[in-house]
Design a binder for these strands. Structure first.
Lengths: 162, 162
DNA sequence: AAATAATAGTTCGCAATGCGAACTATTCGT
DNA sequence: ACGAATAGTTCGCATTGCGAACTATTATTT
């Protein structure tokens, strides 16, 4: 990939190209698992502990709640997660990993680590940290843009005349 | 955004979160234009000169050719591009910007620059360059994974039993 | 206390994307 | 000359995002 192209495109497209390539490789590495996607959601649930509502996942991973329902339905069908109603607020459901998922998580973490080792080859541990810090910085810079409700118009439906 | 979350998720998800946020902000900034997306494709066409076939765009931006047909139909409908059959190989169509698009490109570049200035706030010009170089490095590292045909299984259709 | 707001989650419908597959037109390879 | 390969199109289906309408529950207002 020419460095040039990445700099010429809008940053979002370059990041998206990179994300897509990584995601493709990870999906390939983990295709032997029963669950073939949503690893990031499983990881998020795993690391959030027990008090993790659907809305909480949506907010942090920027996934809309309708998609979340569908994704969780899929993961429930695969018996990787379960919903537990919060007795303190019965509108909420806490999402938890099942023992079956718990048993699979190490394999997921292992393959992610393997892939990251390949991805970051040529970068020192310190440079990797810096890369993450910079992603985070850019994220915060863009997300806190004052007057832009950035998700409202993301992929908005085209309701114009044909 | 806690740096922590970015490091805990698969890299692809972190990059995707960032891309999504950036894309949302850019779309908002440019929503007054007649064309409300595909800026990266317009830029790619612009910078590729005249000899730019559909397949060429697909290869470089990793967009499948079916989607490309739909996208170009949209851009043609908006009178932003035109197709010119290659007389040397009549299977091919060269994609070119129309004068109408040419007139719009400066505005697109301006807003991208404005957004990038915000996004990279806190990073020196040299650090920005380094960030791009690292994206490129990671891309090359992941893309050249020997045995993984990474796009084949990307978002593959779920053909399992319900 | 009753009425109203707000919140968590679900369901429906539509638009956009990715991709497998089948297709046409054209060019390449032997 | 014939079969393989390539550029592009069309069809069909799965996934995602999101607006909208809905239920159930909780919080706030009056």
């Amino acid at each position: 990939m020419s460095n040039d192209l990445f700099e010429r495109l809008p940053l979002g497209r370059s990041l998206s190209l990179l994300a897509k390539t990584y995601f493709g490789a990870l999906t390939k590495k983990l295709e032997h698992l029963e669950v073939e996607r949503y690893y990031s959601i499983l990881i998020f649930i795993e690391e959030s502990g027990k008090g993790c509502s659907q809305q909480y996942i949506c907010d942090h991973l920027k996934i809309d709640k309708v998609s979340m329902v569908r994704i969780l339905d899929y993961l429930i069908k695969k018996k990787f997660i379960k919903k537990v109603q919060n007795p303190k607020d019965r509108r909420e459901y806490f999402i938890e990993l099942t023992p079956k998922a718990e048993k699979t998580m190490p394999e997921i973490h292992r393959e992610i680590k393997n892939l990251n080792d390949v991805a970051f080859k040529g970068l020192s541990r310190e440079k990797q940290k810096e890369f993450y810090r910079n992603m985070c910085l850019i994220y915060d810079n863009v997300e806190t843009l004052p007057a832009h409700k950035i998700f409202v118009n993301y992929k908005k439906a085209n309701k114009e005349k044909k």
